[in-house]
């Protein structure tokens, strides 16, 4: 996988497999601090410490205990190669939080890719999950908790052809506006 947003999709799929009813995904591009942080938290069934350790080991991971393959170990290696890392905090019956960090400017850092596509895929493909998205670049923020949207859409498919474009625009515009705002702020002349 060549984009971080595909890895995010992969980790979120683990959350769905773990029976989560609520999943939060936050992507924070701290340009000034030169750090990229991705966090996925769910309220799924969680893992015991031993399993949480095992899902990071590419050679021991067992397909029968949990649907985790090579995705996490490879992402961990990629993060560590960019002065970052990957941690998993998990508690049985409570949920799992996966956090990945990268040095933002590292030459080997994978591009974030189409984060809005990943979010739209999750929102439309798993409507039974309560999704909470957060995208931040320096001080510019876009947050979307889909609770309100779904209240409006009760009993209506999110994939109806007239509904889908509204949702897509909502996410795309949100992500775009964060990028624009952040860039504007960066381009402001320094006050000496």
């Amino acid at each position: 996988m060549r984009e971080l947003s595909l890895h995010i999709l992969d980790i979120a799929e683990n959350s769905i497999s773990a029976g989560a009813s609520r999943v939060g995904i936050s992507v924070i591009e701290d340009i000034k601090g030169d750090k990229l942080t991705i966090k996925i938290s769910d309220n799924g069934k969680g893992m015991d410490p031993e399993t949480a350790q095992r899902v990071l080991d590419p050679f021991v991971t067992s397909r029968t205990t949990r649907k985790v393959g090579l995705g996490l170990p490879l992402l961990k290696a990629a993060a560590e190669g960019c002065n970052g890392g990957l941690t998993i905090e998990s508690q049985l019956g409570v949920g799992t939080t996966t956090q990945v960090t990268f040095q933002h400017s590292h030459i080997d850092r994978m591009p974030l890719g189409e984060i809005s596509d990943t979010w739209l895929t999750l929102l439309l493909g798993s409507p039974e999950v309560n999704w909470v998205f957060h995208y931040q670049m320096d001080d510019a923020v876009f947050s979307l908790d889909d609770t309100e949207l779904k209240k409006e859409l009760q009993g209506i498919l999110l994939t109806e052809p007239s509904i889908m474009p509204i949702l897509r625009e909502l996410i795309r515009d949100g992500v775009e506006s964060v990028r624009l705002n952040a860039k504007e702020n960066l381009c402001q002349p320094l006050n000496h």
Binding site: T121, L124, L157
Partner: peptide, 30 residues
């Protein structure tokens, strides 16, 4: 995902939208 499932899903959604196909359930699975 590695094989491009996200792009496939996107293409399916595009088709639904441009052809205005109603009442189609699109889901993802593991």
């Amino acid at each position: 995902i590695a094989a491009g499932a996200r792009e496939t899903l996107k293409a399916i959604l595009n088709f639904i939208e441009t052809r205005n196909l109603q009442s189609i359930i699109v889901k993802q699975t593991g």
